[in-house]
Amino acid sequence: MSINQQLGYTPDHASPPGDLIQEYLDHLGISARELARRCGRSGKLMAEIAAGKAPIEPETALQLERVLDLPASVWIAMEAAYQLHKAREAETEALENSYEWATRFPLKELAERKLLTRQSGKSEQVRELLRFFGVGSVKACDERLGDLLAVDFRTSTTFKNDNLALSAWIRIGELRAASIETADYDRDAFLAALREIRELTLIPINDALPELERKCAAAGVAFVLEKPLPKIRVSGISRWLSPRKALIQQSLRHKSDDHFWFTFFHECAHILLHSRKEIFIDMAKGPGSADPKQEAEANVWAADFLVPTAAMRSFVLTFAGGEDEVRRFAKKQKIAPGIVVGQLQHNEVIGFAALNNLKVYYQWTDE
């Protein structure tokens, strides 16, 4: 790595190799045509090189090495630096024209999470956003956004969705997951881990999360809990990062324990039951497509895994609406009472305002 690369130095100018050739011509007192004759090239080509209108090709560099006694590598390096400078100037202009596009992303929030830096220059800010998404151009970024939104994610119609903010949140999950070491995915190991994770609903979330993450990773699934960005209503996504590594990412959008755990097991169901190439979307409006049957399958699987259907039906037959009844049933099922309440509400056994005091509500540390 050169000292310029180490220091992040980018020259704001670069001279074409033709300038140096012209200095040699002046020093030797010969014309471009004479130099061309000595090199065995056409006079027109050498005149264009000297004027910076034509590039120095490797063959020409070797000929100049012999005639002017300056290594071919120097000529090639000068040409490369000049061409790179011209490309950078052209790119800067193009990126400046894309600045308005970049401002549609939640730049402030991404900077606060130290995922990118705010830049004063328009082109520099667009470059920083492209770096965040891991792409080389605005066109490539637009294509990448389509890929990022083609995932399985649970959402709530209570919150307004912004697709650009959503794509940024999904990208954060990718970046976080990249630092999580996981074993190769093993379906049986994942199912075994989920049976152990189910009992984590009984302990405080801060104590449960490290164990949840560890158990998932040991089965080939990265778990990421990432605070939602403004204007998005996603609760969770599940996707495959590679054939051997899956990702479950949650936002804690609704901060109750029943919603958090149901979302988690819903995403687990998609990983267990459905194709790794499928796209599942549970939202009123948005990108992609969803098979309602698969969404229903994930809901049924998650509900039954948390509270066995037969046990819930039996409980509902004698349920009189009391808190103590819920607590005793939840204790027998080794599950948090709030999860039982959530299912009773969803099944319209009780109203959505009933027994919410049995739920646990989480809060981000910076709130």
Rank of each mutant, 00 (worst) to 15 (best):
R154L: 12
A302M: 05
G40Q: 10
V360T: 13
N97S: 13
L62P: 09
E295P: 06
I237Q: 03
A177E: 00
R38T: 09
V360Q: 07
S98P: 05
L129H: 08
G236Y: 00
E196D: 15
E48C: 14
V135G: 03
F265P: 01
A72E: 07
E124G: 11
K122V: 05
L148K: 02
G342Y: 02
H85L: 06
K359R: 11
M312V: 06
K108R: 12
E267R: 00
S179M: 15
D291I: 09
A90H: 11
P17I: 01
P228S: 02
A193G: 12
A80Q: 08
V340C: 06
L272H: 02
E199C: 09
A320V: 15
F190I: 00
K86R: 10
F159S: 10
P204M: 11
D69E: 15
F105G: 02
A303N: 05
L358F: 09
S2P: 09
L225H: 00
A47V: 13
I232L: 06
G288F: 07
D291P: 04
L68T: 06
L148Q: 01
L229C: 01
T318F: 11
R118T: 07
D304E: 07
G146K: 12
G134V: 13
S15D: 13
D304K: 01
V340T: 08
V326Y: 02
Y99R: 05
V221H: 01
S123K: 09
I3N: 14
V349C: 07
T92A: 14
D26T: 15
D304Y: 01
F280W: 15
N97D: 13
A81Q: 08
K332H: 15
R41F: 14
T10K: 11
F223P: 00
V126D: 00
P228T: 03
D188Y: 11
E65R: 04
L225A: 06
I180D: 01
R33T: 12
E181S: 12
A298Y: 01
C268S: 06
L252M: 14
R154Q: 04
E348F: 15
Y361S: 03
G18W: 00
W301P: 02
R195P: 08
V316T: 07
E199F: 12
S251D: 03
D152T: 13
K332Y: 15
T309P: 11
D147V: 14
F153R: 04
P308G: 09
D152A: 14
L62G: 14
G136C: 05
P58A: 07
G288H: 03
R313Q: 09
R118K: 12
T155L: 07
I197A: 02
A302D: 05
